[in-house]
Design a protein around this nucleic acid. Structure first.
Lengths: 181, 181
DNA sequence: CTGACTTTTCAATGCCTTCTGAAAGTTCTG
DNA sequence: CAGAACTTTCAGAAGGCATTGAAAAGTCAG
């Protein structure tokens, strides 16, 4: 890592964020770009982003549009410049809430539906072969998965509705700095 | 999807689980194999797994060892058979707790450390150039990220210690079936 | 100890996702 | 409305990751 402390700090934060969002299922470059915009503190144009990240103009364009869709960044019209500029959405908790609502909730919901479908298939098979003990086991375990998936759905739904911070109360005591800033 | 209802049900559940675990950052095949073992309700050998999933013996071996490490499946010695057999761990909540503890907690912890490092770099740069307003903005925002990361760490840590179900109380009312089974 | 059977290892392969580079499309200015 | 500036699109390239296939290692019964 080269450059002055300022540059290195931004690179380090961007790299960290890229890993976090990759872990969370997004392209790493989205995290890098968001960090760049967030820490720049002013609107940047697509080619400034390309320059700082080393990405091609095409890749930057695609990343920007993906992030606009998630409302993770925002367009900022800068007077006197024909280029479009972008700033990072700063309400990180809101971003997380939105993503949970639009992505995780959908995924868990689909899982619930598929487990229900699988269970229905087994119950149907049981009607035809009531004495098959194996089917009893499968049905029982599928019911277990289904219950779990439904509980998960309820949790995610609650998170999406109330926001991540609704989790904090359960922790009893929260580290002092959590309410700073 | 072909075969009788029983077979299709298992395939559907396995596919669903493979997507869930893939989403969660594991290889899809781990989810498929776990489902297979979970729904089989009896110990299966490596080649039975290979047969049902269509994977090669090598891939099955690697998947099995990865799952044994996470304690997601368990070895079961079957008398009279030289092959090793495996069963699925059935305590799904315990599995989740373990994974959160060993993986998510580590990752969030690393993020905290890296944001601290980045902030330290910026503070150092500020000593040299106290009038650089840009550095003030960067430092302030980095502090924001750091606070968030620390709160996240606290949350994940709480989850790992108390288990996922510690989240349920916050939901006020829980769907009736959550405490079934 | 031997040979058969089972599991592990790992280089080569194929697959899938993301990025590049350039052409096409769009928007703005004069 | 012409031309320049900027953005988007997309076919192909690159790279990363999981799987294959076969050889090596390990295990067990007799």
């Amino acid at each position: 890592m080269t450059g002055d402390a300022h540059t290195r700090a931004i690179a380090l934060a961007a790299e960290t964020m890229s890993e976090i969002v990759a872990f969370w299922g997004f392209k790493p470059s989205l995290g890098r770009i968001w960090s760049l915009l967030y820490l720049a503190g002013r609107p940047l144009s697509a080619d400034e982003i390309a320059e700082h990240t080393g990405m091609s103009a095409g890749a930057v364009s695609m990343a920007i549009n993906e992030m606009l869709q998630w409302e993770i960044i925002v367009r900022a019209s800068l007077p006197g410049d024909r280029k479009r500029h972008y700033t990072a959405e700063t309400d990180v908790l809101g971003m997380i809430r939105r993503i949970i609502e639009q992505r995780e909730l959908r995924m868990v919901g689909r899982a619930v539906g598929r487990f229900e479908e699988a269970l229905a298939l087994v119950e149907q098979a049981r009607l035809e072969r009531p004495d098959d003990h194996e089917l009893v086991v499968v049905a029982e375990r599928l019911r277990g998965l289904l219950v779990l998936a439904r509980v998960g759905y309820g949790l995610v739904d609650g998170l999406a509705r109330r926001g991540i911070l609704s989790l904090l109360p359960i922790r009893g005591q929260l580290a002092g700095d959590a309410s700073a800033k």
